[in-house]
């Protein structure tokens, strides 16, 4: 009995430390985004601003270029996520349902595509899009983002499809449905939570992609991570506006991520429960 209490106390302490550690940078950035410029430079630094100001957010949203960057991110993320679902869902279904003798090779290629360091791909992408005169358009960055999200969607959806018993589809087919009808009418509604989690994670990949965006986007097509980088590389960093920009970059993904949290965890750990 005593031991149980000790274990509980130790667990509680570990969890509290983890919470402080996790929230430390976040809270600092949140407070900084509400500080006036003068308060950014107090030594020693103060956590809570004396006067909360919306100045940093106003600067961000009144700058047409910044707002454009935000919409660039939305455009690139949405397009590449739609591509990922269009290509990924049928392939995942095919892999989960049919015994194909080359399935292992395909799984390997998909996994390798997912695991290849971006730096390996960025140089050929850059040279090829330069050769095809696509530099400065949205096409290279959208395709680059789908390069990461398509394999991911296949990999994750495969796990969700294999959880749906095949007998359900067979029953539908005995009743006269074609395989495609069985897929769209019976299976897809059942894996809808999986699809939403997959799209959020695909969106997360594209929204947060930096290296490709850095190399492949121009002034017009720049996305949020590149903007954050531009702030950091300036000599006189305006930490306040910078913090606001950082928060604007991360908040949409945190909200979406927490909405699909349970399936997200399941999708992330595909294969690990085997």
């Amino acid at each position: 009995m005593n031991k149980n209490i000790i274990i509980k106390i130790v667990s509680l302490i570990i969890v509290i430390i983890a919470l402080i550690w996790t929230l430390y940078p976040l809270v600092w950035i949140i407070f900084s985004s509400f500080k006036a410029p003068l308060e950014q430079f107090t030594i020693p630094p103060k956590w809570i601003p004396e006067k909360f100001t919306l100045r940093n957010y106003k600067i961000f949203f009144s700058n047409a270029e910044f707002v454009r960057t935000f919409f660039n991110s939305v455009l690139v993320t949405t397009s590449s996520t739609i591509l990922a679902l269009i290509f990924g869902i049928p392939a995942a279904y095919g892999l989960a349902r049919f015994n194909w003798k080359h399935a292992n090779l395909l799984s390997f290629i998909i996994l390798l595509a997912r695991m290849t360091p971006p730096v390996v791909m960025v140089l050929p992408f850059f040279l090829i899009s330069r050769y095809l005169n696509l530099s400065g358009t949205y096409i290279p960055i959208i395709i680059a983002c789908s390069f990461f999200s398509v394999p991911f969607a296949v990999w994750m959806m495969q796990g969700f499809f294999s959880e749906i018993p095949e007998s359900l589809e067979e029953a539908a087919r005995i009743d006269g449905c074609t395989r495609f009808e069985a897929l769209t009418k019976i299976v897809l509604p059942l894996v809808l939570p999986g699809i939403s989690a997959t799209s959020i994670l695909c969106a997360l990949i594209s929204w947060n992609e930096f290296l490709f965006a850095l190399v492949l986007t121009g002034q017009e097509t720049r996305t949020l991570p590149v903007l954050v980088n531009m702030f950091v590389s300036e000599k006189n960093v305006d930490w306040g506006v910078m913090s606001a920009a950082a928060l604007i970059t991360v908040i949409p993904m945190i909200v979406f991520g927490l909405l699909v949290q349970n399936n997200l965890v399941k999708g992330l750990t595909v294969g690990s429960e085997k």
Binding site: N208, P225, V232, S243, G257
Partner: peptide, 18 residues
């Protein structure tokens, strides 16, 4: 605890640099 995982690595870098 899940939150850091959803934050762009660029922002993580910025936060820690700050």
């Amino acid at each position: 605890i899940l939150i850091p995982f959803m934050i762009a690595p660029v922002v993580v870098g910025f936060a820690w640099k700050f």
